[in-house]
């Protein structure tokens, strides 16, 4: 009895009528879309990927370029040993030259 009711209910649910859509619905949507601009928002990683794609460089080139950039950054941030400024307790170059001139 229960199975019968289940089957009848399923048939009722499957036979629900749907009023047909307007025949030009798809065309209306397509026409409306033509009047609307697209927003080209992309995730950041995709933008970066597309940017690298534009260069058409092999991967080793990116490694070398990255190493170069890294090296430059290291170079500018490293302490400079050839600084001519006076050290505390040391002999300055200026003083040394002045001594020479004094002798002359």
């Amino acid at each position: 009895m229960n199975d019968n009711r289940d089957e009848k209910l399923d048939n009722l649910l499957r036979s629900r009528r749907v009023e047909p859509a307007s025949p030009n619905l798809a065309q209306r949507i397509i026409f409306k879309a033509r009047q609307l601009p697209q927003t080209k928002t992309m995730p950041l990683w995709q933008s970066v990927r597309d940017l690298f794609g534009e260069f058409h460089l092999p991967k080793p080139a990116y490694v070398l370029a990255s190493a170069l950039v890294f090296g430059i950054v290291i170079g500018f941030t490293a302490p400079q040993d050839t600084n001519l400024a006076v050290d505390d307790g040391g002999v300055s170059l200026q003083g040394f030259l002045s001594e020479d001139e004094a002798l002359l």
Partner: peptide
Amino acid sequence: SKAAAEDVVQDAFLKLWENPA
């Protein structure tokens, strides 16, 4: 509702077109 259903389908597709991402 036919009108409401058509509006919803239109809005859904236009949403996709305007922002395909």
